[in-house]
Design a protein around this nucleic acid. Structure first.
Length: 411
DNA sequence: ATGTAC
């Protein structure tokens, strides 16, 4: 057998931690969090750590947490179902106009992006303006959500935003890109999640789990590792809600991708093209029922992508760096997983302190993207080297396509 | 990441 490509940390208490972090940094704060997770009594076999690992709330981003008979809502987090979608077109770089400003503007106009678009308290009643496709999607989704509301009336909150948020990008590190692969073939790629409604589901159930820990006098190493044991009051409802939010997120990405394809096709002088020659849509913040080492368990991937044999995944680099379309190698020790990106090396605050606008302009010189002070926290230098990260997970995935951005729309 | 309160 080939030598293993991961380091093993054996905590005093709990299961081992298998870390694909050779040649990449693992912060002490992140390692402590991994030790906290490892000592929970329901972790199955071991915790797997991806090379983009960094500190997160409760559980580290870039970790895979297999559980048997319990679920940790804060491990999934609040951006439930966050993930990536990419489609390969039959366009080539030479089909694109010299100046990509119009294409970028078309995309920006077609997909609401940023914090306060669609669904804020100000645009209640936007129902009438919702395109048929979105409305049809909501008709499919609403049943389960309304069932949840009957049991959890407080889930709704005061604002109605779920349906209005379908087809919207959101903010933070959510983005849309036009990319070229190694043969100069054009791809569209986007990163988004379940928006306001998934956030609400996440925070609501995280809070319930914390209350349950107090109610039953269960001690957890970190309050954000509060969990629902299987069979307890809220376990089934959380599983139903989280799966629903994941469905919302995946559908949201699909709706936006359709809008991007249409928007790009409006670009002046661009020839007719076929999109979705290849299509990938994968979560990297989610929980799924899976079978590992012969047992049916729950696998929580917090900043990790499923990488079974023949699964295609997307590993984006930072702005201005390469991104990868990958194929899984079904490595059982990783619970069939790989990293979800490059991973931050510093907080958003630290990045804004460290980098100037000039640094950012230099780092993104070949990309048609925002170059203002607001996006400094997303500048390439705030992230690990994507090449080091890819190198550390050669036994988890193989690279199918290497992409570089030519247009980037930030949320 | 997000909605809301400040």
């Amino acid at each position: 057998m080939a030598s293993e490509n991961f380091n093993v940390i054996k905590p005093d208490k709990g299961v081992p931690i298998k870390a694909w972090t050779r040649g990449v940094p693992l912060e002490p704060e992140a390692e402590q969090q991994l030790r906290n997770v490892a000592q929970l009594p329901f972790i199955y076999k071991h915790v797997a750590v991806m090379p983009d690992v960094h500190w997160g709330i409760g559980a580290t981003v870039g970790s895979v947490i297999p559980t048997l008979g319990a679920i940790i809502p804060a491990a999934v987090g609040v951006d439930i179902g966050c993930g990536m979608m990419a489609v390969q077109t039959d366009l080539n770089a030479r089909d694109l106009p010299e100046n990509l400003k119009e294409m970028r503007r078309n995309i920006e106009q077609a997909v609401p992006h940023g914090r306060t678009h669609n669904g804020g308290p100000r645009d209640k009643g936007a129902w009438n303006n919702i395109p048929t496709r979105q409305r049809n999607v909501w008709e499919r989704l609403r049943g389960v959500y309304e069932g949840l509301l009957e049991r959890h009336p407080k889930l709704q909150g005061r604002s109605v935003n779920h349906v209005n948020h379908l087809g919207t990008l959101g903010g933070g590190n959510h983005f849309i890109e036009v990319c070229l692969d190694e043969s100069d073939t054009v791809w569209f790629m986007l990163h988004s999640g379940s928006r306001g409604v998934g956030n609400r589901i996440g925070t609501y159930f995280i809070d319930l789990a914390k209350q349950d820990m107090r109610r039953w006098h269960i001690n957890v190493p970190d309050k954000d590792l509060a969990y629902f044991p299987e069979g307890a009051d809220h376990f089934d409802d959380y599983v139903e809600a989280v799966e629903w939010a994941q469905d919302f997120a995946m559908t949201n990405r699909d709706l936006m991708m359709q809008a991007v394809i249409k928007a790009v096709s409006l670009t002046k002088g661009l020839r007719k093209f076929k999109a979705e020659v290849k299509s990938v849509n994968c979560h990297h913040n989610y929980v799924a029922r899976e079978n590992h080492f012969g047992k049916n368990i729950l696998v929580t991937r917090k900043g990790a992508v499923r990488a079974r044999k023949n699964d295609l995944g997307i590993i984006p680099g930072s702005m201005g760096a390469q991104s990868f379309i990958v194929r899984g190698l079904e490595n059982e020790n990783s619970f069939h997983s790989c990293s979800h990106g490059a991973g931050r090396v510093m907080s958003r605050k630290a990045a804004k302190r460290k980098f100037s606008l000039d640094d950012h302009v230099k780092a993104t010189e070949n990309v048609e993207c925002r170059k203002d002070l607001e996006v400094i926290d997303e500048t390439p230098g705030a992230y690990k080297s994507i090449l080091d990260v890819m190198n550390a997970q050669k036994d988890l995935v193989e690279i199918v396509h290497t992409l570089r951005q030519v247009v980037c729309v930030k949320g």
